[in-house]
Design a protein around this nucleic acid. Structure first.
Lengths: 207, 207, 207, 207
DNA sequence: TATGAATGAGCATTCATTCAT
DNA sequence: AATGAATGAATGCTCATTCAT
């Protein structure tokens, strides 16, 4: 099962009054930015809503930009953790594919803020290259998983980049449908979606 | 074949000095907004670069927002046109699927500004619901095409919304790979991508 | 006779509404900055006191710094003009020396703001090198005058830089005494001061 | 000979860890303020560079302003000491004049920070009247020296204030030339400068 | 239509100072 | 005495929009 709502808790051992402030700032900033947009979220509002004085915010973060990057990194890490949860190596490849697909879908579904934030800022110039690279780290295990599938001829011989991006795109499409509420995304729809993904990448004998 | 580069030409019959100005404004605004971001593109810059005075811009567009919406509508129309080009009803269903897939991919590929703008603003609150509805119109023919496939059991019985969004998502994924330049998107990759899409939606007997 | 109070009038032929605004801004900024200091003079105050909106100020000047530089350049020009006024070539060298000395003294005395501003910003890093170079231009005629005196053995063989700086320093000392109001600077004191200057540079036979 | 580099040592009997901190603060503040300007030198920087915590600085000084005043007073005292050094009453008046002139010049020349700080803040409203009065004390012996010269008809009958200010201005002019590095201030230039000063104040029979 | 100077509310950020530890 | 996190008012500057010409 996937972690429930992100709570922006930092490492337990790092906990302190200071951490609590940082947490508050990031948590509030995430909400406000997703709901209103970056430019529509003044630092003064983050300060007021989080109850942390302006100066204190700047004590913890060099700039508004740094807050955005901090949120990005944090959410990517959470996503990375959620993605691989409950990896049961006894499952066969297809079952694991379903597992991972569903993990990410559920993570996004249960963390609307995280999904919208990450979607909006993947390509943004506000996110530094350094942060982007740091974010990519969390995809490594899943890439290995696909490479294994390719090696064993379970998956069609598709370029790994294309493969990864397409599957991720499929998940994102479903999450977007979910949040747009065009249709209700129930178990049946989710299964259809995962099935589409699997059909698109699996060799015939493994379908 | 797909229309070449968008030139933001408005209806020939509306042509006049004024039209030329409107065109200029939209063209320049599109470029600047895609390259710099909306908030980073002041009206004064649009004015300066396009050579159209501030006041004149406000003669043609009620607000900055209206410019963004005008661009959105215009690009969606162009996209709609490109999508259905060279529809040869003599082709079989699968061939048409390939055709349409490729049409949209090529359109995005050849119109980087259009792609990036549309991607960035699909979910944006800056785009009014009215504009979004207007934009959706252009998908109708392709939806009909999918419905036909479903009726004739060529396609798996997938929810039409899921189906459309997933295929569109697949195309977008490839375009993003193309512009990120992670890998070179050549004929082989494109074929792999379309094939993935087709496998994900087609009934076995039609693969 | 020396120009009376500086009025920050720009070239008559350039006069226009715009000029008037620029003038107002510079005039008010000069006063406020001299009386309160630069950092103690917010742009908002310059705006309020001058009756010119913040945005308008930034329409005319790129930054607060540019205003300071504009004032500096303007005052240096005024000073340059005042310095050479009523140059009567029929006068002998000593008389001309007295004339120029007195010109500059009177200029400073009658333009307290100018004097204090120039004194405070000569060495300031806020004044760009470009501005400083532009300011130095106005000293050229007086340097020529001193060189002539050296050539004709009227003046002692003193390094020209030392000579100029010392005489200017003497004038400045008197102006400072005047504004500090330690003593009343009357005709007698002024004559004493000029005489000190002349004694310090003139060859004995010319005293 | 003139005291060497100012070290901001406070009274030996007051020495303690605390004194050392006060010293550090003043020393660092002087450097930073001269190099960057007052407003450009935040207390936080003084704290960081001096290695003394913000709170501790405020233990020793009531405010930033008080630091500036403390530096001013300290430097004035140093200057006062340097000015009268090696007073050899066996020397004749002119020789003493040369001695004092040179003392002050060398002090300024060897203590660039002190010179620049004192020059910048003489007229500053940041320096309280009380501090200014305290600073003036150190000029008293030199004023007596000039009064003696006036009494004995060695000096021209010049107003004492004008006399003092002019001579001090002459020294300052040379120091400024030195630090601007327009020309190299060597023994010859210094002699020229002192000679100018002497000529300007001495009665003919004493030149 | 067309112009572009003028407007002023709004924002990110800074920094002297305080105070709980 | 010493610390440094916390405070929040204050500032330089931006920019969508208006309006007199």
């Amino acid at each position: 099962m996937v972690t429930s709502k992100i709570s922006l808790n930092l490492q337990p051992n790092e906990r302190s009054l200071c951490m609590t402030k940082k947490e508050k700032i990031l948590k509030i900033a995430l909400e406000l930015i997703v709901n209103q947009g970056i430019q529509e979220t003044p630092m003064s509002q983050i300060s007021k809503v989080s109850g942390v004085a302006m100066g204190t915010i700047y004590h913890h973060f060099k700039s508004k930009n740094e807050i955005v990057n901090a949120i990005y990194i944090y959410l990517k890490k959470e996503m990375g953790n959620a993605l691989l949860e409950e990896k049961d190596s006894s499952k066969d490849y297809k079952a694991l594919f379903y597992q991972f697909w569903n993990n990410l879908f559920e993570f996004y579904q249960k963390n609307e803020m995280a999904f919208k934030f990450l979607q909006r800022f993947v390509q943004s110039p506000l996110i530094s290259d350094e942060t982007k690279v740091e974010g990519l780290e969390h995809y490594k295990p899943i890439i290995s998983f696909f490479e294994e599938g390719l090696r064993n001829n379970i998956l069609k011989p598709i370029d790994i980049v294309l493969l990864t991006e397409t599957i991720h795109g499929n998940i994102v499409s479903l999450v977007q449908i979910h949040f747009q509420q065009t249709i209700v995304v129930n178990k049946k729809i989710i299964d259809q979606a995962i099935d589409m993904s699997w059909s698109s990448v699996a060799n015939k004998n493994y379908e």
